[in-house]
């Protein structure tokens, strides 16, 4: 049972608000993680990761141009935006590799909008890192566009950023010889 800190009434474990007084219990219902390591995944928002602006392109840009930009910016994934700047798709190195290498010339000149993955899974900058990690693991994604409340991409979170976060935060000083 969960005692309400405001009125002391007993509530079901996992209750979102106190049945007696309506006090918000969501924070109490969140599972307690054992270590600071685990807690940091829950407490730290996605924006604590290496913050690099998302590479945004328009759907009518050619695959060749987008590939060039990815390589130039050393990015693994571009976000395709509509004319309002909203994220409508993603095009990753993996997409490129799977589709481009066959009939190179032909596909390189096609608009990226034809080859992108539509309705990409996105995260908000305030979401906990654990959430991004979970999404990446579920979908097998290497990149998640981070969007603001209007769906405008503000940055890109990559699987490498998360591993770097773990490396820098917890394993510093254990660098390989």
């Amino acid at each position: 049972m969960l005692a309400c800190p405001a009125c002391g009434a007993e509530n079901m474990l996992g209750a979102e608000e106190c049945e007696a007084c309506g006090y918000d219990l969501t924070d109490l219902s969140r599972p307690e993680s054992a270590s600071s390591f685990e807690r940091s995944f829950q407490d730290k928002p996605v924006r604590c990761l290496r913050d690099h602006p998302a590479l945004t392109v328009l759907a009518n840009q050619s695959v060749r141009d987008v590939l060039g930009l990815l390589m130039q910016r050393d990015e693994g994934c571009a976000v395709i935006v509509d004319d309002q700047g909203k994220a409508i798709g993603v095009f990753s190195e993996r997409d490129a590799l799977m589709q481009v290498a066959d009939e190179e010339e032909d596909i390189l000149d096609r608009p990226v909008g034809e080859l992108m993955t539509t309705e990409p899974v996105t995260v908000e900058a305030d979401a906990p890192i654990a959430f991004a990690l979970h999404q990446m693991d579920l979908g097998g994604y290497r990149h998640l566009p981070c969007v603001d409340e209007k769906g405008i991409p503000v940055s890109m979170v990559s699987v490498r950023d998360i591993v770097t976060f773990v490396g820098h935060r917890f394993l510093e000083g254990e660098a390989p010889a």
């Binding site: 599972p31 979970h134 290497r142």
Partner: peptide, 17 residues
């Protein structure tokens, strides 16, 4: 790196799931 992420998820189910 993907396998590492899988391992993190497996190691910390409380935090992540």
């Amino acid at each position: 790196v993907r396998r590492i992420v899988r391992a993190l998820v497996e190691l910390f189910p409380t935090a992540i799931y």
